[in-house]
Design a protein around this nucleic acid. Sequence first.
DNA 1: AATTATTTTTAGGTTTGCCTAACTTTATTT
DNA 2: AAATAAAGTTAGGCAAACCTAAAAATAATT
Lengths: 218, 218
Amino acid sequence: MKFSISEENYIKSIYHLQVLHQRVNTMMLAEMVKTKAASVTEMLKKLHKKKLIDYEPYKSFILTDTGNKIALNIIRKHRLWEFFLVNKLGFNWDQVHDIAEELEHINSSELISRLDEYLQFPSFDPHGDPIPNSKGKITDLKRSNLIDIPLKKTVVVSQIKDQSITMLDLLKHFKIGIGTKIKVNKRFEFDGSVEIKIDQMPNAVLSNQVAKNIYCVI
Amino acid sequence: MKFSISEENYIKSIYHLQVLHQRVNTMMLAEMVKTKAASVTEMLKKLHKKKLIDYEPYKSFILTDTGNKIALNIIRKHRLWEFFLVNKLGFNWDQVHDIAEELEHINSSELISRLDEYLQFPSFDPHGDPIPNSKGKITDLKRSNLIDIPLKKTVVVSQIKDQSITMLDLLKHFKIGIGTKIKVNKRFEFDGSVEIKIDQMPNAVLSNQVAKNIYCVI
DNA sequence: AATTATTTTTAGGTTTGCCTAACTTTATTT
DNA sequence: AAATAAAGTTAGGCAAACCTAAAAATAATT
Ligand SMILES: [Mn+2]
Ligand SMILES: [Mn+2]
Ligand SMILES: [Mn+2]
Ligand SMILES: [Mn+2]
């Protein structure tokens, strides 16, 4: 079965919202796909008819197993393309999302399996998010939030939750990226901010709002 | 200015038809974009309003200078992606057209200039067609048709005109590709067929219809 | 429990791109 | 020059996605 670009974007967004909130409702989804609630309702009816979501009017909804598989395949494509853009074409990690947003809809399983092989079957995209394999299986790492890791322990940044341009821009300023070795010197009770140390860099303080979005492997 | 995928496909098709026939008419274009004449007329009105074609009702039409530039940019993207698919991902030249047909609509000049650089600024795509540079300039080779080249002279296949799957399939069978060294032993007046010789291969006879589509550099 | 606020759906429109059928213009035959 | 054929346009409709405004259902307050 083939799906329109719109349908694919809705499916993928439902998936991401489910990861955060278990079940999804109309308003959340409308905001994520940048449209109005009325348009979402129409699409929900269509996705339900195609058996991609479990949906009853006025209730929250979730993907069916088929819906889930389709979502994972789109995410796989998105993340493989992001990896390609950064590691082969030399883009910065904060430039690739919008392009991958288009590339993820290119329709060819042969293309994706060859791309995967060409990239040597990467497990994580440039933002540290896991890339589902061809069967849709995700193998993720155990990661701790910068807020929670023990003081004075050097850990490695491995995932950024908020991937807005503004966030990625801030991280670039502090020279924080996936793979960066980082140490928390101090945690300030008052506002939840943390003082960090990165090799070759002066001490720096990150707000709680920033620190919450940085995950590390110990 | 941004254009829809449909608009881009029409513009590109007009360009290709112009190369063959100088001016384009409704029926030709309808056949090329696989739609009906009525739909073409509607699109012609839109493209004319956007100043991409010179068009008057009931007359044949051509691209304006702007239209031409846009066409060349789409063709550039198409051929760069084809080059990528064959030379980096290992596709055969007969598998890449449909995928490039989708990839050519991805919207990012940064992406294309990086891809171009990554591929080391190739001049020809896997079918021997010239790739316009970033300014839209094409530098093509002088090529002779297999029908016309002198007998017993070894030449190099450099372009295939008809790129249908069936044609590419036939060429694969005879081990003819871009770069293949080829010699015409004999030309048969009766049906215009030619007997050819390729290294490591027995003599073979190509029909006039096939030979007409093969171009070589001497 | 009743009122108010929020969420969700429905109703009615718009745009893009496609279609068929009817009509008009241009080209080709007789 | 008329008649016929072919090409091109217009008219009227349809499906996909979007929209605003109104109505219905659910949730939150008083
Ligand atoms: Mn997308
Ligand atoms: Mn990512
Ligand atoms: Mn195309
Ligand atoms: Mn080509």
